[in-house]
């Protein structure tokens, strides 16, 4: 039992730090670039993504283990997962609209964007590839989301200053933002020496 708990903790820490979804694995760069102009919106996006990733990990695990594998339809994973994710996002959107309108308003525009966030489909596919069980899949999804939130919030605070900086004309806009992201990725390389589990 101890070994199992340890492996869960290992998944949690490595998904946040050593294998950070954005800065090491490059999942979800589009929202990372698009929604990191302000800390508030970055935090909102991060929370929404974390929630959907945990939910999607659980649902995709269930679909894979209970439907696709018994029927020998493993090759339909990509199609099945993207449909599951799209419907989860839709359901979450409707649920929040009815029951937590305040949160819905705060996240509003980000919710539909999450369907095409490769972090969500990515985590579902990686869970299957690594043959995680249900609990490990959910932890990996939630931790991946937390790592995403950490990176995007950190980066938003860097970017608020970078945008005001005086830099050569050709570098204005995306190039300097990418270079700033590169420096942040370099900082995260420091975690790669960490041995977990």
């Amino acid at each position: 039992m101890d070994g199992y708990l340890q492996s869960l903790l290992g998944i949690l820490l490595s998904a946040i730090l050593t294998e950070n979804f954005i800065l090491v694995k490059f999942y979800g760069i589009c929202p990372f670039m698009g929604v990191s102009k302000k800390i508030d919106t970055a935090l909102g996006m991060g929370m929404a993504v974390t929630f959907v990733m945990a939910l999607a990990s659980a649902a995709c695990w269930a679909v894979d283990a209970l439907v696709l594998q018994p029927l020998g339809l493993g090759y339909m994973q990509t199609v099945a997962f993207i449909l599951v994710i799209a419907s989860i996002v839709q359901v979450v959107e409707m649920f929040l609209k009815k029951s937590v309108p305040a949160l819905y308003k705060a996240l509003g525009i980000f919710l539909p964007l999450i369907t095409t966030n490769c972090a969500v489909l990515g985590v579902a596919l990686v869970n299957v590839q690594k043959q995680y069980d249900f609990l490990r899949s959910v932890i990996n999804g939630a931790a991946g989301g937390l790592g995403f939130t950490l990176a995007i919030v950190l980066f938003a605070s860097v970017r608020e200053r970078v945008d005001k900086a005086d830099c050569p004309e050709s570098f204005r806009g995306y190039p300097i933002t990418l270079i700033a992201a590169g420096l942040l990725a370099m900082a995260f390389m420091g975690f790669s020496g960490l041995k977990i589990g």
Partner: peptide, 25 residues
């Protein structure tokens, strides 16, 4: 080694896009 690691991806793309913007302007 850093250039084939994640850091290099961000830095290279930043410089390539900067060069592209310079050429187009």
């Amino acid at each position: 080694m850093q250039m084939v690691m994640p850091v290099g991806g961000f830095l290279t793309l930043g410089f390539v896009i900067a060069g592209f913007q310079y050429l187009t302007t």
